[in-house]
Design a protein around this nucleic acid. Structure first.
Ligand code: MN
Ligand code: MN
Ligand code: ZN
Ligand code: ZN
Lengths: 145, 145
DNA sequence: CCTCAATTGAAAACCGTTTTCAACTTAAAG
DNA sequence: CTTTAAGTTGAAAACGGTTTTCAATTGAGG
């Protein structure tokens, strides 16, 4: 989804929910879409502070939750104790490879794994609602290779 | 691994690390092995309190970390914000199915998924060190079926 | 026993997250 | 334009699970 389309989706969301369009929300969305993916609230907050020192952490936090509620962002947890957010650019789901040495995050999608998950879950009488697959290891930049 | 063998492994660990065998550590290990799996620190603490009200939360916390360090327990995070521990009964790895309705946790292992993970990681130049796969959904007791 | 390092439990500190609340904006009404 | 009501903001406090602190206690070796 393009930047403009995302902004429109958020504005529509605000309208239908009886929420207001504010300068902060616009600034936060703009920075969220420009900055790298998988940023923590703190990281995004610090980036915003550089350009606009009057913005508050609580507002960044609340706005990111709005993004998630609206469907333009997704919250992630990679085990370092803090929530991270990424834009729901594409409608397709993906999983993550995380380098334990440099922190690099690579996204991937494998239909074969997805299918096996459904099969395994079904075998235990479960209907999958969502899943989390994270592969932690060493990337080629960090380990011999 | 049997209960006796686990206790021996822990005692060996204490010896080689210059740590002491204490009444609390024995009580906590016994309860940890008897009680159900995937318990949080708080849950184990509350169970221990019933039998021995003089035990402290901090000691349970520290002892569970010792168990993990020793290799007889593993820490898990299922997204409810608290750490859970399970005995490393078998040497073989397993993943989890979690019912979002009743909280039931089912363990599974699928070599085909494991293999595909290695393949996918390799394709991105990664060497997997560990992974986390959790399937969240509805179990047969909770959903129509 | 004695000694000394390890352990314990209560309480405080920690840390990311979430809420509170008075001041301020926004958007719609007058 | 005002005015008004409702939503928003940011600083600070509260929260909740985890971890540390520290004085008192305990365990193992001498
Ligand atoms: Mn991603
Ligand atoms: Mn398990
Ligand atoms: Zn790396
Ligand atoms: Zn269930």
């Amino acid at each position: 989804m393009g930047k403009v389309k995302t902004k429109n989706k958020f504005n529509d969301f605000l309208l239908t929910q009886g929420l207001k369009s504010t300068n902060q929300r616009e600034l936060i969305l703009e920075e969220f879409l420009c900055a790298g993916s998988h940023l923590s609230t703190e990281e995004l907050y610090l980036r915003l502070r550089r350009k606009n020192p009057r913005i508050g952490y609580a507002t960044v936090h609340r706005t990111l939750k709005l993004f998630a509620e609206c469907g333009i962002a997704e919250q992630r947890h990679f085990g370092d104790g803090q929530a991270r957010y990424e834009a729901s650019d594409h409608d397709e789901h993906h999983d993550h490879l995380i380098c334990v040495a440099c922190g690099k995050i690579v996204e991937f999608e494998d239909p074969r794994i997805e299918e096996l998950q459904v099969e395994v879950a079904g075998g235990h009488g479960f209907t999958i609602e969502r899943h989390r697959l994270e592969l932690y290891g060493c990337c080629s930049d960090c380990c011999q290779g």
